[in-house]
Design a protein around this nucleic acid. Structure first.
Lengths: 204, 204, 204, 204
DNA sequence: CATGAATGAGGGTTCATTCAT
DNA sequence: TATGAATGAACCCTCATTCAT
């Protein structure tokens, strides 16, 4: 007899473990988090963990991929008619919304420091690459429509937008910051970046 | 037998190990770096390591304290006559200069994700506190002298300055960034922050 | 609900798993082979495996018993009229024929090193005992009929015959040997054993 | 201050662990023996084990290499004047002497069944190769001096000598055999092999 | 003071076995 | 009956730390 196994259940277990991993990684860093902790948080046995993820590494990669997917979804769901500048600011809001979960902030911050392992590095770059290429496309469009400054390459502007978000995440992770309350200032800061410094007053 | 040990030598060994620790922590994260690696990099035996630092923890704390001391030195060496606004921008430059060492960038980024251990957390907060109180004092002075915007509390402005530096560090650590080349834009962005958005054009 | 299960089918499944076990045990040794490997080779799920064998141990025992049964069958099928010496040499040929399957050679070799587990040891001894008692009976008969040397006890001769077969298996397992090509030499060697060294030439 | 560490001590510890490994491997097979058992037998902590051998694999390899070295030593210490035939029989005696230690017999038997791991396989082949090349050289010399049969290639004769020793080991390991008591018969059987079957009696 | 051998708790991972479907 | 998800004991190995030399 074949197996009437509900794939939804499997998916759910996977997400349960992914969520636990997010918590543990955010709390203790990657190397500092133990699979035992993750299992305890997820409420599963160690065997179950490795039934779903071949290694601890793979769990991290899965988390990153989930994040990349979310990013892709965000950009895919944007109305083509929305002005690119609005899309960029919308992305910032979207990112901030994620950072409302302090675990996400810590996770993002700690993930930045991961360089030792090869396949983690690869996954990180893939994740970054996803975001960056999406953002850069919108930046390029916005420049073409003269909605933002044109004196910086799209790539550079993209990196700076991500810089602001990273810095924001870092502060949220540090706990000296309420993501919600500071969101408007982040938006403002991004707009200042997109507009560039005001032209010097040349009135005689 | 007396100990004619040259305290200079001892200090040198200490710094040698501290430097190795910086390298290893930056490369593998705190938990990921092993004392064996650190010893190898420093060129000392494990026994020597534990002669100078009772604990791996203690090494991290020492590195943080060294950083805090540098920060104190920076502010202590400032000419009282320098306008506070200039001091702030000078601090940003100072921070960027540190980040030219990619190890420093990685270290700072990864240190942000450390929350599990009690005495590390304490050392981190002490380090942060040092910087923050120094910066806040200067911010306060600058506001009093109307050199920067006054619509944000000194604390909030301080955090945001540090946010920009953290974001910068994160991007340097990520490798998509040349600290030297991007420094001017960081300065510009800090100035935009300090000035606030330009008043809307009210000319009739 | 009745169980109209075809016992033939069940027997087939059993053999399928037994065959997979032979392969896996030969390839990785008993402890080194995993039930997962065996299941994969047999093309069944782990649940099915444990439906047929309560234990990995039990599978090994079953394989051994199958071998013992084959041995019993061989001797049972011998024509009573055949001279015992011929039966012995026939048994050697029979054993070599089995060893043409390199899995069998590896299996036999590795099984020799199994001493830790109690019920495995018991099964091994039972298997051995079967062969040994059958061979010994024939040896005894051959001695009585003066077809082979009489200066060794039947038991000792039996062990030495098995020694030659074991050594042969070991070399086949090692891969430096083609069972078919070397079979005649094994036969010759057994005959030398059965005859003993030639009487010294006493001719004046 | 440098280290006055006695390298003899290190060597002794190594041998202590090697001996424990021999015991454990012989008793439970390679995969079946646990590093914990080995440590217990050797009377050292697990850390010490891995201080001396990077892996369990490496321990097995070390044991094999020790054996190969012994074999080399045996042949190196042979007087050049000894007739090659005597050297061969001397080697057989030497091998039997080793097999007096039942652990050695079990170890040799179980090692024959190891094929899964790459570097173990390599070490095994190196070990085998050592013995085989030494034996073959002597066989060749003996043939040249017409001390043994010439109707088999040196390689083939070599393999058959090793076959007899392997079979002997297997029976010692099985416990149905006293190595010392059976040694003469092994010698006899080897001689039968070296001489070949007696020429058929052609006297009319 | 410097060294590295020794330690053992703990970490990631494997695997025989159970059981709901 | 057949399946494979779930389990946790046990495994191999790592690593911070201790201590005799």
């Amino acid at each position: 007899m074949p197996r009437p196994i509900d794939p939804t259940l499997r998916r759910a277990r996977r997400l349960q473990i992914i969520d636990a991993g997010l918590t543990a990684f955010a709390r203790h860093g990657y190397a500092g988090a133990t699979t035992a902790q993750i299992c305890r948080i997820a409420g599963v046995g160690s065997g179950t963990f490795f039934h779903h993820f071949p290694t601890k590494n793979a769990l991290l990669v899965a988390i990153l991929e989930l994040g990349a997917e979310e990013t892709r979804d965000f950009f895919a769901s944007q109305d083509q008619a929305t002005p690119p500048r609005e899309v960029l600011l919308g992305y910032v809001d979207h990112a901030v919304a994620d950072l409302t979960d302090p675990r996400a902030a810590s996770f993002i911050t700690m993930v930045g420091g991961l360089t030792s392992n090869a396949d983690i590095r690869a996954a990180l770059q893939a994740d970054e690459g996803t975001t960056r290429s999406r953002v850069r496309d919108v930046v390029t469009a916005a420049q073409r429509q003269r909605q933002i400054r044109a004196d910086m390459t799209p790539d550079r502007l993209t990196v700076w937008i991500m810089l602001l978000i990273d810095g924001f995440a870092s502060r949220v992770a540090g706990g000296d910051f309420d993501a919600g309350a500071e969101a408007p200032l982040l938006r403002e800061q991004v707009e200042l970046l997109l507009d560039g410094p005001p032209a010097p007053d040349l009135t005689p």
